[in-house]
Design a protein around this nucleic acid. Structure first.
Lengths: 214, 214
DNA sequence: GTCTATATCGCGATAGAC
DNA sequence: GTCTATCGCGATATAGAC
């Protein structure tokens, strides 16, 4: 359940050189918009060299996205379990998340995974499983070990927490919201943390267990 | 400020016929992956007819996305100002949002706007302004006219509300989260509404006005 | 206005020398 | 293993008949 059925990569220097070039082109031009000639030029190798290391364009693309997804996954979640005071920890998570995800390469990776989610559904699932599901799981576990926070549905709140951060990055940095409806990241994070922590301060007899009528 | 500097469309039947065909192809194949031959076949016209109505591939693509964005905008936000009891209204908004956005065409439109946000930034800005900014503004106004909810930063909470819904749709339906980490929409909405409404039930002297230390 | 036919170019993939 | 040269195909865009 917790282990991923994806084997770790072992990459030769030449393959990494090719992937670095492929990354620059695919991330900015998309799958269909990328030509193998351009990748060869950008990587500083000939086209045939690419075909000798990866089966074809599709194979190169899959290898690139798996490589980026898994390496970035390790980089973000290497800390293991979450610990500390709620107010401090949530802000820290948001801060790390903001600095790691606001990175240009990572934003382009997300955009590319979304763009090709129909043509390459397995890659989208890999991304969802390793990045999003894992993050949600870690935070959800933290909530469960802190019952004093009064969180009724840890998984849902964890999804709301990360979802708010994801949509912020998406709208502000990918959809150019920073130009037409700018909002400070700290402002969003502060409101978000206040929302979640306010659960522990309220009268639990009140209408917090609102139920749907559908 | 509230008016958009985009003139309403007047579309001839032939143009709509072309746009309908273009929609099917562009939404599933992306910009670079779409051929004008395919659009012509799908629309039931010849290729030259397309070029006589739209200047080129880029012009056709822009016209399509502006057409879809603006027409969908009118469809969702025709209700004007929001009214009603908070618990009822928020759930109603989430319900409308869920049914309108979960539509396959609309999900593909969002994916396409994201995918081409770098090549066509003006289209991304148009989408952000007409759809996201407008929705956030309406909900923010509602919060401002209901001070009893105890919401300190209406704009931020409105962003969190819609952001949670957007990211849910994105992860579940576009990134295939429904296959690897399914979650019921009502479950998320219930937790989200509880979070927001809990603000009005708490002791306002407590740590709800947590401040960043950065 | 709309169609058929065509020009021109860049693409993915391969063959063969070294 | 890596390079240069090339094949075959499908792309955007246009020309000219009706």
């Amino acid at each position: 359940m917790t282990s991923l059925d994806v084997v770790p990569f072992s990459i030769t220097p030449k393959q990494e050189q090719i992937l670095q070039g492929a990354m620059r082109v695919f991330l900015s031009c998309g799958y269909a918009g990328t030509s193998m000639d351009r990748v060869a030029t950008e990587a500083g190798v000939s086209k045939q060299t690419i075909y000798s290391h990866f089966t074809n364009k599709e194979g190169l693309f899959k290898a690139l996205l798996e490589w980026m997804t898994l390496s970035r996954f390790q980089e973000v979640y290497d800390g293991g379990q979450l610990r500390g005071e709620p107010a401090i920890l949530l802000r820290q998570v948001a801060k790390i998340y903001g600095s790691k995800v606001a990175d240009q390469n990572y934003l382009c990776l997300i955009r590319l995974v979304i763009a090709e989610s129909d043509r390459f559904p397995e890659l989208a699932k890999l991304f969802t499983t390793t990045v999003i599901k894992q993050g949600r799981h870690l935070l959800s576990q933290y909530f469960e070990t802190h019952p004093e926070l009064g969180i009724a549905d840890p998984e849902a709140i964890a999804q709301i927490f990360f979802g708010s951060l994801v949509s912020y990055m998406l709208v502000q940095h990918i959809l150019h919201g920073k130009d037409v409806m700018p909002m400070d990241y700290d402002r969003l994070v502060t409101s978000l943390i206040n929302l979640i922590l306010a659960q522990s301060n309220q009268d639990h007899k009140s209408g917090s267990n609102y139920q749907a009528d559908s």
